[in-house]
Design a protein around this nucleic acid. Structure first.
Length: 922
RNA sequence: GCCCGGGUGGUGGAACGGCAGACACAGCGGACUUAAAAUCCGCUUCCCGCGAGGGAGUGCGGGUUCGAGUCCCGCCCCGGGCACCA
């Protein structure tokens, strides 16, 4: 392509005196329609490198805490930082980065001081698993990956302040992660308790959830078990209510807020105690036990429907409930084995499977009963996996008449069902009846009360008698932070000889990750760190021998505060200075994938609130505005299953490579849009895209092709279309260049010709549209508006021909300057290049964002849609200042309209100003 | 299963409750070319009709309204999240 183009290159400097630079490096061809040489392709490679170098040389994107900018003229715009995987950047990453870059460049053009940093989330499982496979230290691969990511990101011309880069595996960074851990520990918000891990009995290791496929280990396919070991937690539940309440003030997508509300899952109810009725034959044994550990056999249950308590016909304990062990001493021998077996089976099921309503209810009867405190009735105690130990008290009162799950269970096991809530009108209902709009029946002295009255009365009664209390329960659980892994931030805790825990003193931070010989799991469930004696052996504050904590922190800890470090990334004495966070925080606009809707965003909010309480940050919320980007999908080949093959539920076919797809008969192959990922072999890297079409084309394409928050279906053709658009912009610039003058405003004299009026209108309308669209992250319509503008500009150039009037030239200059500036955020290399070619100095992002004139946007005439009975029958042109009466009479006069109205009486006429007339004549 | 999104021409998408299909891609026709590519110009929701024109149409079924892609109710399908991937 390039060789042929070289031969075809022509010089046409006589007609483009000011654009000689373009002539020197651009490919020209003669266009017979307009009778001139035009540019066929723009030299993006040279252009992009040149501008990236200039931007870097001039340190133009460096953010400085300049007090001359008042708070409302500062903006902190942040991308969720990437995890640098070995596969390198793929085209999904730049979508969000382009959006923030456009927004930042736009803000700078509007006079804002902008902080726009980038860093890397570098601790985690993939690097460690790679180390296990290859023996390469995770730090080596991680830093190599980071270098690759950084180069790739830089090739796209984003306006990051790279001087603020942070990397979470850098001891200078994780020192402060440990420092925050300590603050949480000191406030009692970091604590240790037993919790379940996925345990593979064959590999003798703890597995991440994603390493468990269908209950089996991903490496050896053994059945994965739950194992209880002591682990570290952050007490996020202490902040549940505030995390819920403060969602109100956030400018986030409503769906994300709703997901967080559901995740926190606030519910109000009553928690009360139920005593176990020990059978007479075992009474003596039971009494002995009561004496021995001072704890009567009893358990607590939580319910949001205390009003249904008279309908309790059984009680259920989660299989993991600690009381089950004690109950086992009292159950008949023949049941003991069944219960033990049930418990070990439950261990193997995931929580999701247990809760699925498709999962048939299972359970075992203990042979024991509990006493319903409101009426003294004995109800059987069952053990069933639909009750989770992690939620509420891990035990429930079961009211099958008014709960779907209890109903299903009772029906299956033949347990009685007693209705205690009925509609107010006394009509019969089908059970289970879960409606709360009813009254209590068969409920002793409470009969006749509404649900709400009964809940209040029963709650008060239980509180008065000390049986139970009203309680707010959250579904939110404390944040499990422990990982029995190597490549994570060490937990800065020391266990002394007496089993007490103390924090590592601040002056000894960071607790450095030591080098290890092997990254393989140790086989006893501890981290590889546990076998490094130099690491583990230490002394406590009194100089006695002690053991260092060997669990590390999950990656979410590191990403819960990186936005604070960006404010002051090189501070060696503090995690950040108070002045820096006061200057920049909160993040005004945070952009990333919706997959982080709950966990990352909730954890970061929690840490920010805690740090606010400690007086360390001036804001209660980290991210004011949130925008989500969509995924990037790629067409992926599949084939239909063969005779001996069976597909899993929901599996569309057998995924194959593109080569296989070529080889196989076409009727066996089909394509689907799948998420781009290394494992699917459908990844397109930005390097390929930049090489073929340039960074600006990639940027424009990714934002044009779909709304920002929707998935993109990646196609090369679409990318080519974006490149074509940029070529057209260059071509227009080349055509207007001979007329160019910086003082074009002086040329706008007298009455404008019709094409000139039209172009000016379009110019100002486009400014308005582009401004509104960038503000609301509607980048696809922003780009579309620029395309429409370019098309209109083209039409104008054709209409005025090679000899336009002075004022037409001036209007063309205004349009070109506007086009360059409006394009600058999206395609900055091209914009700066064209601006320079016109003799302009500096960078376009340092220029002022264009302003539109409302008067100039206004159309001369309006097209009014005319409907008859809501159906479009005609459109009419009217002057922009026509009155309602005039418009209605023109509309009625239309022959097409008359044909449909006929002689019918007109009932009414609906008029929408400037838009539409609807004649209602039924 | 639960929670949250989404479903509009051949394709991606546009559309304050007011002309459905902006802007692109692909396709078709034309110009240029020895030719191809590139570029430029034009057409392009479907059905009926030579045409003028008419009818249908925003996943499916109802409803509200002068008027519904948009609001309400009930379904179907696809995607994301579900606490140790990040």
């Amino acid at each position: 392509m390039a060789a042929g183009a070289g031969l075809a290159a022509r010089r046409c400097s006589p007609c483009h005196p000011k654009a000689s630079w373009i002539v020197s490096i651009t490919i020209y061809r003669f266009d017979h329609c307009i009778g001139r040489y035009i540019m066929a392709k723009y030299p993006f490679k040279d252009i992009e490198k040149k501008w990236q170098k200039r931007w870097e040389d001039e340190q133009t994107f460096r953010a400085v805490e300049d007090e001359r900018f008042p708070k409302e003229k500062r903006r902190y715009v942040l991308d969720m930082f990437p995890y640098p995987s070995g596969a390198g950047l793929h085209v999904g990453h730049p979508e969000g980065y382009t959006a923030t870059d456009i927004y930042c460049r736009y803000l700078r053009m509007n006079g804002y001081n902008v902080l726009h940093p980038m860093g890397f989330d570098a601790l985690g499982l993939p690097a460690e698993n790679y180390a296990i496979q290859t023996g390469t230290h995770p730090a080596v691969t991680t830093y190599a990956n980071i270098d690759r990511f950084r180069t790739q990101i830089k090739s796209l011309g984003f306006s990051y302040d790279w001087s603020r880069e942070v990397i979470t595996c850098d001891p200078e960074y994780y020192k402060w992660t440990q420092w925050i851990f300590k603050r949480l520990f000191e406030k009692g918000l970091a604590y240790r308790k037993e919790a379940a891990v996925n345990w593979c009995p064959r590999c003798k290791t703890v597995l991440a959830d994603e390493e468990v496929a269908g209950g089996l280990c991903w490496r050896c396919e053994s059945v994965v078990e739950k194992r209880f070991i002591p682990q570290w937690f952050f007490k996020i539940t202490a902040y549940a209510q505030r995390l819920l309440d403060d969602l109100e003030e956030l400018d986030w997508p409503e769906g994300i807020k709703q997901m967080q509300r559901n995740w926190i899952g606030r519910s109000e109810g009553v928690e009360f105690e139920m005593k176990v009725a020990v059978p007479p034959s075992q009474a003596s044994e039971g009494n002995l036990e009561v004496l021995s550990d001072q704890k009567p056999l009893a358990f607590r249950v939580f319910t949001t429907r205390i009003d249904t308590v008279f309908g309790m016909t059984f009680a259920v304990l989660a299989p993991e409930h600690p009381l089950v062990d004690r109950l086992l001493q009292h159950v008949p021998d023949d049941r003991r084995a069944a219960i033990e077996e049930y418990r070990s089976a439950a261990k193997r099921l995931s929580e999701q499977d247990r809760l699925a309503t498709t999962h048939e209810k299972t359970g075992v009867f203990t042979g024991l009963c509990a006493i319903n405190p409101v009426n003294g009735h004995e109800v059987p105690i069952w053990i069933a996996d639909y009750v989770l130990y992690g939620y509420g008290t891990g035990a429930i009162m079961a009211v099958p008449a008014h709960d779907e799950r209890d109903f299903e269970f009772a029906t299956k096991f033949g347990i009685p069902i007693v209705q205690v809530i009925a509609p107010k009108d006394g009509s019969a209902v089908e059970l289970p009846w879960v409606d709360k709009d009813g009254v209590m029946v068969a409920s002793g002295e409470y009969t006749g009360m509404t649900v709400a009255e009964g809940q209040k009365a029963l709650g008060e009664w239980m509180e008065a008698l000390g049986i139970g209390e009203r309680k707010v329960q959250y579904r939110l659980r404390d944040w499990l932070i422990s990982r029995q892994r190597y490549w994570g931030c060490p937990i800065p805790i020391i266990h002394d000889a007496d089993g007490n825990m103390e924090a590592v003193p601040d002056d000894q931070l960071p607790v450095l990750l030591p080098d290890v010989e092997h990254y393989e799991p140790t086989g006893d469930g501890t981290s590889p760190l546990a076998h490094i004696e130099e690491f583990v052996n230490c002394t406590d504050s009194e100089g006695r021998l002690a053991r260092r904590e060997t669990d590390t922190m999950g990656g979410f800890a590191c990403s819960s505060w990186y936005f604070l470090r960006f404010c002051d990334p090189h501070n060696g004495r503090q995690p950040w200075s108070p002045e820096s966070v006061r200057y920049w925080m909160p993040v005004d606009c945070y952009v990333g994938g919706a997959e982080h809707a709950v966990m990352h965003l909730l954890y970061a909010r929690f840490w920010t609130k805690f740090l606010y309480d400690e007086g360390l940050v001036p804001v209660k919320e980290p991210f004011h505005r949130l925008e989500n980007q969509g995924m990037v999908l790629a067409l992926t080949p599949f084939r239909h299953p063969r005779e001996n093959e069976r597909l899993e539920v929901g599996q569309p076919g057998i995924q194959i490579t593109f080569e296989e797809a070529q080889r196989l008969p076409q009727d066996q192959v089909f394509y689907r849009w799948e998420k781009m990922s290394k494992s699917k072999g459908n990844v397109v890297t930005p390097d390929e895209a930049v090489e073929k079409f340039g960074a600006d084309a990639l940027r424009v394409y990714e934002l044009f092709v779909a709304p920002f928050d929707q998935a993109i279906q990646w196609t090369d053709e679409g990318l080519q279309g974006a490149a074509r658009f940029l070529t057209r912009v260059f071509r227009i610039a080349t055509e207007v260049a001979p007329w160019w003058r910086f003082d074009w405003e002086d040329g706008l004299l007298g009455e404008l010709s019709a094409p000139a009026r039209e172009l000016r209108r379009k110019t100002h309308q486009t400014i308005r549209k582009a401004t509104e669209d960038i503000e609301r992250f509607a980048f696809n319509t922003y780009i579309a508006a620029l395309m429409t503008f370019v098309n209109a500009f083209n039409d104008f150039l054709k209409m005025v021909g090679p000899e336009p009037t002075e004022s037409e030239k001036a209007v063309a200059c205004e349009a070109l300057q506007t086009l360059i500036l409006l394009l600058s955020p999206a395609a900055p290399h091209s914009a700066d290049e064209i601006w320079e070619s016109l003799g302009g100095g500096g960078f376009t992002y340092q220029m002022d964002w264009p302003r539109y004139d409302e008067q100039l946007c206004r159309e001369d005439t309006l097209t009014i849609a005319v409907q008859v009975n809501g159906k479009l029958r005609d459109t009419v042109e009217v002057p922009a200042d026509a009155s309602r009466e005039q418009i209605e009479s023109v509309a009625l006069a239309s022959a097409k309209v008359q044909a449909h109205v006929g002689g019918k009486a007109i009932k009414k006429v609906v008029y929408v100003p400037g838009k539409l007339v609807n004649i209602v004549a039924p």
